[in-house]
Each structure stands twice: as C-alpha cells, then as structure tokens.
Simulated scan of single mutants.
Amino acid sequence: MTRTIRLRFFASVREAVGIAQEELALPDEVRTVGQVRSLLVARGGVWADALAEGRALRMAYNQQMTGADTPVGEGGEVAFFPPVTGG
C-alpha cells in the first residue's frame, strides 16, 4: 500500500533544492522521518548536499519538531529547515 506525504522545504534548504514543496509516494520500507531524509539524499546532487546527515538541519512532522525516529503516515507532512539563530 502506497503512502503519500507532503514535503516542505524552508529557507536555505528551499533555495538549495529549488522547490518549496512536493508530494511524494513513499516506498514501503520508508517508515520514519529519518528514512524520508535518507531517501531524498539518495537523489544525489543538490539533494545530497542540502540534506546530508552531518548538516545541521531541523525536521518537523505535521508541524511539530521531531527527530529521525518519528513514524510517517499517509497524508503526513515532513518539513526540513535550517536551525534558527537569534540575535
């Protein structure tokens, strides 16, 4: 059974990948926010650079800050954005 999610990209991540959002049909083995990130990194190029594991990056699921182990369900929204700094 295919699960479709919405991806959203903000700030420098959006600038790097060139889009603000997209719909994505997840393969069965992709079940967590971290696995979604890995799937996008596997696209290579700007995706691998913008979402690389070592890069400081915040993630949210359904508009709540989350970690890589958070499960992803049908119709969910996964967002990626750089850490916010204040001053």
Rank of each mutant, 00 (worst) to 15 (best):
M59K: 10
V17K: 09
V84N: 02
E53M: 07
V36Q: 09
R55L: 03
N62P: 05
P27V: 09
Q21E: 15
T85V: 05
T85A: 13
I5F: 08
V30R: 09
V36S: 12
S38G: 13
I19W: 05
A56T: 02
V13Q: 02
Q35P: 02
G67V: 10
V46M: 03
E74A: 14
D69N: 13
A50N: 08
Q64N: 11
M59L: 11
T85L: 06
P83R: 09
G76Y: 08
R14G: 00
V46E: 13
G34H: 01
A60D: 00
R55F: 03
P82H: 09
V41P: 01
G54E: 11
T70N: 00
E23A: 15
P27G: 03
A11Y: 03
M1F: 01
V13I: 15
L26A: 04
A68P: 04
T70E: 14
A42H: 08
P82L: 04
R58F: 11
R14Q: 09
V41H: 08
R31N: 13
V78M: 11
N62S: 10
V78N: 04
E53P: 15
T4F: 00
F9T: 01
A56F: 06
G73F: 07
R31P: 03
A68M: 06
R43Q: 10
R43C: 12
Q35E: 15
M59E: 00
R8C: 00
L40P: 11
G75Y: 00
V17G: 02
E53K: 15
A11T: 03
G44E: 06
E23Q: 14
R14K: 13
E15F: 02
E15T: 11
S12L: 01
Q21S: 14
Y61R: 15
S38L: 14
E29M: 05
S12G: 04
L26N: 04
G67I: 07
R55H: 06
G86E: 05
P83E: 09
T66V: 11
G86I: 04
L39Q: 09
V84H: 01
R31W: 04
G67C: 11
F80T: 09
R3Y: 06
A50T: 05
Q63W: 08
S38T: 14
P27F: 09
G54F: 10
R43M: 05
S38H: 12
F80C: 10
V78Q: 05
M65D: 05
A25F: 00
Y61F: 13
Y61T: 02
G45K: 07
A11M: 10
L57V: 05
R14M: 06
M59G: 08
R3S: 09
V78G: 11
I19P: 01
L24N: 01
F81I: 09
L39N: 05
R55Q: 11
W47K: 07
V13D: 02
